[in-house]
């Protein structure tokens, strides 16, 4: 049996058909993204040892975006529990994507920006909207601008219209949609790729109304997202199905590869995932089959060759203002431990 999400089927599951709307064909020149930097916000919202697989999920994506070139300074990683150092982990400092220990997604260096109880709805919305307390270090801020492409990955336990954070609170799809709209209004992104692996995941993006968002989810409303397999050595399910196949796909993507987003949407067919992968592309202006995957998962930045250096003939000399260089402190020496000079004088 697969470990399914905790049942949050309190609400009626809407059996409405999921419609995809395809935009008009856009001229070729608009297919190229004009983003100037890439950011990733990766969030695991659930605690406790039996949710080991969610940490494995989020670290799988972390590993991939880092390998594809997004620097740690532009990845915001939120993990609510520390599975690698959990006393129940028989192999400390490792998290595997597979019972056969194929890939250690924990890797050598993981920079977690928000951990434990810092992973809260409030902090998540503060992070997205930029309304962080003034003493927040730069590494914990999402310093995006109108040229930023952002990958948002969420995993945890969800239901129809909400995602649970930390067993104590939820973010609703409306709150998330409002936060994204505030980001758009404040020009904090160029494009967003929203990726979510929870039960009834597609309910989280249905309320979105801001432009330039491409969203995909591991399951439709009314479906559970299932875990892939159990590792009997650690006694828990080790990774979720959808992310397992996503990682498998991303492992074969290289920084200069030309894989497209529509290939990404097909990574987990229903036969493999059991749940249906949902895609929402009506807010997105470009055709996903022409968008390289590295627009979101990598950091391919625009490079402009400089061919017009200024031939400086007048060598400038700036008037030195008052020296504000740090003074090198004079080196001091220890006195000899035994006062030899006193001894010598008495001899």
């Amino acid at each position: 049996m697969y470990f399914s999400c905790k049942l949050y089927h309190v609400l009626l599951t809407v059996a409405g058909s999921f419609s995809l709307s395809y935009g008009l064909e856009i001229p070729k020149e608009f297919q190229n993204s004009n983003h100037s930097n890439n950011w990733a916000v990766l969030v695991d919202t659930s605690r406790f040892w039996f949710n080991y697989r969610h940490v494995a999920n989020v670290l799988s994506i972390y590993r991939s975006v880092k390998r594809l070139g997004i620097p740690d300074s532009q990845i915001i990683l939120m993990i609510s529990d520390d599975m690698a150092c959990n006393p129940r982990n028989p192999r400390p400092a490792t998290i595997f994507n597979n019972a056969h220990e194929q890939i250690n997604v924990y890797g050598d260096d993981v920079e977690v920006d928000y951990r434990g109880y810092e992973v809260s709805v409030e902090n998540f919305v503060r992070l997205l909207t930029g309304r962080v307390p003034p003493d927040t270090p730069r590494s914990k801020r999402l310093l995006t601008d109108e040229g930023s492409n952002i990958l948002i990955y969420l995993t945890g336990h969800g239901g129809d219209g909400f995602l649970k954070f930390q067993d104590s609170e939820e973010i609703t799809s409306q709150e998330l949609a409002d936060a994204l709209e505030q980001m758009w209004q404040k020009r904090r992104y160029n494009e967003i790729f929203f990726l979510i692996d929870t039960c009834q995941a597609s309910s989280m993006y249905e309320k979105f109304y801001s432009p330039n968002i491409l969203a995909t989810a591991s399951s439709l409303v009314g479906e559970d997202s299932l875990s892939h397999h159990v590792d009997s050595a650690i006694g828990v399910y080790i990774i979720d199905r959808y992310t397992y196949y996503v990682l498998e796909f991303l492992e074969n993507v290289h920084p200069n590869s030309k894989r497209t987003m529509s290939e990404f949407f097909a990574v987990c067919p229903k036969s493999a995932c059991i749940s249906t992968v949902g895609v929402r592309r009506d807010l997105f202006k470009r055709d996903p089959s022409k968008v390289p995957i590295t627009d979101f998962f990598g950091s391919v930045r625009k490079v402009i060759i400089t061919t017009d250096p200024i031939d400086i003939l007048e060598i400038p000399k700036r008037k030195r203002k008052a020296e504000n260089k740090t003074k090198v402190i004079e080196k001091r020496e220890y006195l000899p431990q035994f006062p030899m000079h006193l001894v010598q004088s008495t001899v």
């Binding site: 100037s36 930097n37 601008d145 040229g147 930045r301 625009k302 490079v303 402009i304 060759i305 400089t306 061919t307 017009d308 250096p309």
Partner: peptide
């Protein structure tokens, strides 16, 4: 080959 006396490039906003 780029035609420039210097080998240089820049990245927007960086």
């Amino acid at each position: 080959k780029i035609s420039s006396p210097v080998q240089a490039f820049m990245s927007p906003k960086w």
